[in-house]
Amino acid sequence: MKIKRTILSSAASITLLAALTFGSAVAFAAGSHDESHGHKSAIGAPGEASEVSRTIEVKMFDNYYEPEEISVKKGETVLFKITNAGEFVHEFNIGTAETHAAHQEEMMMMVEHGVLEADKINREMMKMDMGNGKTMEHNDPNSALLAPKEAAEIFWKFADDGELEFACNVPGHYDAGMMGELTIQ
């Protein structure tokens, strides 16, 4: 599947602007942003630096990735070096289409609470207690949330099966096409 580069469309821009300005009708449910981003055994597990077989550099732009597709081998441990080269906040998240859909709701909640703005992240607010000791910290091993010009690394060991994507779940970005296919050979 070839992923085409998509600049944030007018509709997606309006959606993101409305979400950032006014919030959304998504009901607030005290949940943890630091759980269930798809880092279950079906997609793999955090990798060890000593097991890395190769490094893949990923650049995030407004609103696409370079590269647009990634192929890995079963059981391979990859170091992803991720850079946000765009002017907006972006995310690199490894998961299934289903886990991305669930994560998008959590990301919308971050926007509604002022944690995410179009071009910055309030990392202190991420630590805010949402109830029952849950926070909106974005510290999952399969994901990096980056403000413009920030960089991060993810060490990931891929499972033997599963249909995966890498995606940006900032409101409006996935819908505008900011995702790519991750093939396990």
Results as ranks from 00 to 15, higher is better:
A45F: 09
S143P: 01
E48L: 15
H103Y: 13
H39S: 14
G38Y: 03
M107S: 11
P148A: 04
E57T: 15
A49H: 05
K74F: 03
F92G: 00
V89D: 01
R54H: 03
V111Q: 06
H37D: 09
E87Y: 04
A147H: 05
E57R: 14
D140H: 12
A147Q: 03
Q104A: 13
K120E: 12
A118W: 12
G44Y: 05
M108I: 14
K40C: 14
N139F: 09
E153Y: 02
E87P: 00
H100Q: 10
M107T: 09
A101T: 10
V52N: 08
A151V: 14
E48I: 14
I70K: 07
A144P: 03
T135K: 04
K120S: 14
K73H: 13
V72D: 02
G38H: 05
H90I: 05
E112C: 11
G95C: 09
V52L: 03
E150P: 03
I82N: 00
G44A: 02
P46L: 08
Q104G: 12
I43K: 06
E124I: 11
Y65K: 00
H113A: 08
V89E: 06
V78E: 08
S41C: 02
V78K: 00
K81L: 06
N122S: 12
I82F: 05
N122V: 03
A97I: 08
Y64R: 11
M130H: 09
S71F: 11
M60K: 00
N142F: 02
M125D: 12
G95F: 01
Q104Y: 01
S36M: 13
V111N: 07
M109F: 03
L79W: 06
Y64C: 08
F88S: 11
E124A: 15
L116W: 01
A118F: 07
I154H: 05
D129H: 03
E91I: 07
A97R: 15
T55I: 14
D129C: 00
H103M: 12
F155A: 01
